[in-house]
Design a protein around this nucleic acid. Structure first.
Lengths: 343, 343
DNA sequence: ACCTATAATCGACACGAGTCAACAAATAGC
DNA sequence: GCTATTTGTTGACTCGTGTCGATTATAGGT
């Protein structure tokens, strides 16, 4: 592979001149520039990325910290990751996929200290996340997909759960629903203070109150099996409910199935709206699911973009971004049923 | 950050001695070694990855080339990627996620020439893939998830579609099914010679013949909507069929729904087995889907491992790996119906 | 006419590691 | 007891860039 010295020799200039022609850090005569670029083209010259990284102290590598086993992989996750990767690349950065168990975060610190990583993006953040503290302590630049309770001096892109939940509840209330249920994730998530769960539950309660509807919260693991259990609970205690908002994509599959097996008709007997599934997931439902779709692309891209801005030392007035997502009305919601269930 | 010079000074030795203590390329007295390691620990020294990469000419970075928009993202894809990332990291390598449109593959060559990439892993390979030719031409080490028609001198990890398809068909035949259908992907995939489609179709025909069953092939895009269309076609032309093998995970959702809406009972009226969906996808089905599950973890890991072996110059007797996947019997298959459909 | 600012270029050095040639001391071979 | 090899260590060089200081030529201001 041709190096800078080869280009300089062929163009008949000093190596530094080639550098300045490339970076524009100092003026170079047009004529000389032309000669240099010609030489670069002839030699098919590519500046060596590792040498640049070493010299400049910027590897342009960003670790995408992916919580591995713990919470299971959901189909939507890939969307965040791809969006971040695309955005990073458009800035000349690269995204290293880093499946890392929660406890093994020290590896990341080590690799950052070794100059491999310029920064990191963290997914699945809890409200009081040790990993965030560790990264802060070691001065490693990072951004979050999600957010912690203490938001000071933190770059993040997150869902605006308050707005999304409210959007969903308002949709149901406008359809005449008065008795609502909120299908949340596991109680463990509440205890561990997973941001999404805590915020969405709070927001649901607030929005229901504001809009004059009642709301019960149902907890369920993020699995079909547990969704079925949740349906049983619902059928026992919450038959008055005519509308369900779900934060739990996987659980909702079981939940809906449980109701359907019991003879319930989705949309006619009970309206269901999900705020946490992809469009693909919504269409896999029968009937297709009304959703407030998480804008995974925007969130992933924003997390990457804002981190890179910080890395490049650009002052950003607002590196904390919230995204609501769009209400997409499909066929799982309809006017609140009046009178008794027809069964 | 402490550098090698700091360690050398603190330990009272030359820099090269520190290097040799670290790499073991030359013998160093135990006593000296101890002093050096003590100094490294005290200074919290980490060798600079970029300097090592520059000096050694090995960036230890592998691009995971991810066909972006074209074929849509399926949930299973993340599994391959994560498995490859984990495997790579266990060898001290890193996986750069690289969403790249088919045509933009030149970028990869450029970045490989720039020393950023040590190699690449390619997904969604067609039997006669231009990208493979390009990488070969430029001498960029790569491995495939999937495989081309010309397998010579190529590292790959792929599904053994022949065996997987046969496993599926045998399962049905053993249950007494004689008239089978094969739900394939789009005809475009056949024209473009996507390996999975071409191989699985061939294998299905061969296996059915061998086991004495009839087999019709139904083409459908990988979407629920098209799956519904495929169901219509099936209901018109193939009502004799009692068993369906599907290569088309997304399409199968629509296909099954189409049959169910027409009053068909899955398992009782028609057995369905899918060879290309994740366990999660299978469980989202109602009834849970019998599958020959793609061993995404093994395939992703093997693609990474074999590439790294080649990069490190290890002669490998067999860098071409095939994986069948396990037959998991769930509730979508049962004995062939006898007599007429009860409708 | 003189001083200063800017354009254009060059050579030297630094970034932080790996590796080779050289050398002293210790050991082995016969 | 003399040569041949191994052990242990050092300094110098290299990987390919970015950038600073110095140098010359030219233009601009008074």
């Amino acid at each position: 592979m041709a190096k800078r010295a080869d280009v300089a020799k062929l163009a008949g200039v000093a190596e530094s001149t080639v550098s300045y022609a490339l970076t524009g850090a100092r003026p170079i005569a047009e004529e000389t520039k032309a000669r240099i670029f010609k030489a670069m083209a002839d030699l098919d010259y590519r500046p060596n990325a590792m040498a640049q990284a070493l010299r400049s102290g910027n590897s342009k590598m960003i670790a995408m910290l992916f919580g591995d086993q713990e919470r299971g992989i959901s189909d939507g996750d890939l969307e965040y990751v791809l969006a971040a990767a695309n955005e990073a690349r458009s800035f000349g950065y690269h995204l290293i996929l880093w499946p890392v168990r929660r406890r093994a975060i020290e590896d990341v610190v080590i690799q950052a200290d070794s100059g491999l990583l310029a920064g990191a993006i963290l997914m699945e953040v809890s409200l009081d996340d040790d990993r965030v503290k560790l990264l802060k302590k070691h001065g490693i630049p990072f951004s979050l997909i999600g957010r912690t309770k203490d938001k000071a001096d933190t770059i993040f892109a997150d869902r605006d759960f308050e707005a999304a939940t409210k959007l969903a509840i308002r949709h149901l209330v406008h359809l005449g629903h008065k008795d609502l249920a909120f299908l949340s994730t596991s109680t463990a998530n509440v205890v561990e203070k997973i941001g999404a769960t805590v915020r969405a539950e709070k927001a649901a309660i607030a929005a229901a109150k504001e809009l004059g509807a009642s709301l019960s919260i149902i907890h369920s693991e993020n699995s079909i099996q547990d969704g079925l259990e949740a349906a049983k609970e619902f059928l026992k205690k919450h038959t008055k409910c005519t509308g369900v908002v779900s934060l739990n994509a996987e659980g909702l599959i079981g939940f809906a199935r449980g109701l359907q097996r019991n003879g319930w008709n989705i949309a006619a007997d009970v309206s269901i709206i999900c705020i946490s599934t992809t469009n693909a997931g919504a269409l896999a439902f029968d009937p297709p699911l009304t959703t407030v779709t998480p804008p995974a692309n925007e969130i992933g891209a924003a997390a990457a973009r804002e981190l890179i801005r910080a890395l490049e030392g650009q002052d950003d007035n607002e590196p904390q971004k919230l995204f609501v997502g769009e209400l997409v009305v499909r066929e799982s919601t309809g006017p609140a049923r009046t009178g008794k269930l027809k069964r």
